[in-house]
Design a protein around this nucleic acid. Sequence first.
DNA 1: ACGAAAATGGAGAACGATCTACACACTTTG
DNA 2: CAAAGTGTGTAGATCGTTCTCCATTTTCGT
Lengths: 360, 360
Amino acid sequence: MATSHRRRRVTIIDVASHAQVSTAAVSKVIRNAYGVSPAMKDRVQAAIEELGYRPHASARAMRGRTFTIGVLLPDVTSPFFAEIINGLTEQLADTDYQAIMIQGGTTHKAERRAIDALVDRQVDGILMVAPISSRARLEEVARDLPTVVLGRHERSAVYDTVFDDDDAGAELAVNHLIDLGHRRIVHIAHQDNARARPADLLHVIRAETYKRVMRDHDLAEEIAVATTSYSAEGGYDGARQLLNRSPRPTAIFAGADQAAFGALAAVHEAGLSAPADVSVIGYDNIRLAALPNIALTSIDQDGVVMGRAVGRLLLERIEGRTPAVHFSVTPSLVVRRTTAAPPGLAQDPTSATSAETAMS
Amino acid sequence: MATSHRRRRVTIIDVASHAQVSTAAVSKVIRNAYGVSPAMKDRVQAAIEELGYRPHASARAMRGRTFTIGVLLPDVTSPFFAEIINGLTEQLADTDYQAIMIQGGTTHKAERRAIDALVDRQVDGILMVAPISSRARLEEVARDLPTVVLGRHERSAVYDTVFDDDDAGAELAVNHLIDLGHRRIVHIAHQDNARARPADLLHVIRAETYKRVMRDHDLAEEIAVATTSYSAEGGYDGARQLLNRSPRPTAIFAGADQAAFGALAAVHEAGLSAPADVSVIGYDNIRLAALPNIALTSIDQDGVVMGRAVGRLLLERIEGRTPAVHFSVTPSLVVRRTTAAPPGLAQDPTSATSAETAMS
DNA sequence: ACGAAAATGGAGAACGATCTACACACTTTG
DNA sequence: CAAAGTGTGTAGATCGTTCTCCATTTTCGT
């Protein structure tokens, strides 16, 4: 039978009286601070064990740290974010820190509310994943709190950034298609209402790089971009628009794998097939992309490495570092089976990269 | 230029002295408690506005509430969980409560650590999504803290549960296949090391219901289950095992859409096609399932409704309700294009349900 | 053996809110 | 006109920690 009223929680005072010492001593043992004898330590630890004591995070927060890292996520759906979280928690695993996540949403108001919620909860550090707030707003937060921003390229002096070299990645993607012989290559881009300098946004960089590489290969007049969103629905809509062009494009560079899935759906629905009629390449190399029946060619960026970097940078900042650090990972091309030479062009065997066959 | 040292945060004392009133008065205004004149209220609110004051959650936690709902998620990947979070945040939107999420992982140790982290942070309520801890452990938490468990079917007296009627859903799935004329129907199940009564676990219920329905139709000798995991990889491995049976099964009921994707990959890789050679049905009806080139037949359970229910139940419990409530949603069949009559059997036009064509 | 230095344990003031109890000024009522 | 009631504001204890002193004990060099 359940006790009807809640038990009072075990506090440091309970431990102290149980171990017949002062609360200060207990506190020292917990924090393993200087000035406590081995005997005292054992005694206190035994008492802690016996009573099942756990320090009260809010009370700690009043004086010191909360041992909490707040993570702002635009949404919880993205499989790519999951990797980052994994990298981060891995990095925090043998510290006392814990990551908590909060959903930001797509409006400025929602994001502001989420950031405020983390600040109010006195997190010791904050990771903002692809935030849409203005740089000024982020710096305002960062002045009060160790902050790392993931996915934006700006080089702030008050917060660290961790990002993928999207310029290199997009170049890899477009060059891969061009190397295969494609000329009518189109792009599916992402639209949001971020208040950042456009050139700092990863989706803008991917789109601009696409245009630049096209121009570099004298394909300026083939440039076509559908700006929807980095989601299955966005990719579907974008691809439908682009496939209606005539002459029809022979390759689609989707700015994200989720969008590439949608694009593949649109290709399929139009009675075409990939890569026979239209090649499709994505970005992010999410796990689903490796499935044999999807086998999406993609650009891999190591989310786990990024997450670990975030953790390291935050811990450093909490320990007192103030100069800003900007960490970037280099993406790589993963060729699978949604890209090939355009129809009518003989496959050049020398340029073919060995395709993956097994699942990762 | 950034100020080098952090600003001291605005406190209730600052507001009080700025508005020339006592801190108690400010506190009353914030909580809109009884005993403040409209004039006082205006004055204090002006001061709050002017100084940009925000109450310090940890300080509040020492006496009253944290206005925080903790959500334990096994992993952040699942698109289905995202729906639940959306429903929950929607329900909390016009309260002062905020949901924070924490990743639990797949081991008991990791889950325990995550739950402890939430309890230590003094959340006002906790949602555990498909936890693997023992019922005793969950009840221990629930005695101290309003708790809702999602995805487990047990009827605890101390915590609420919200779940999908997995028995009905699995029956829908298997019956759909049987109605189409299938007999060699196999199942992909999930294995975890949960310390719950097996009959309370959704994946066990789905598997057991599969067996029961098969038996009910005198198909006991056709029963075959591959127990892997509800993931793309698990579905792939499971389907590979099952497709090796001879005679080859004509239909696969995967316990989750993610696993169904993996199963489709295996089908494809074996040189077969769905639904011509093998029908595949999933469970969860995640968004990707609706993509035209996937068009996975699935069982829909309304995650948003479940999330809203969780929010409502938690708020009620925080307000003082103690009797346990158990809320279940009824799933429905969504027929798309991965299921059809088995090869060699004429399609019966009367039993054909109209398939979806557009994206949801 | 003596005094200085080092090690150890504790007292008590924060931290920033909440909330009970009460004081004070006005009304209302008998 | 006194007594009682009502509305408004404040004082001050409290929550569970951390952390800065400070007092006491132990160690050790000479």
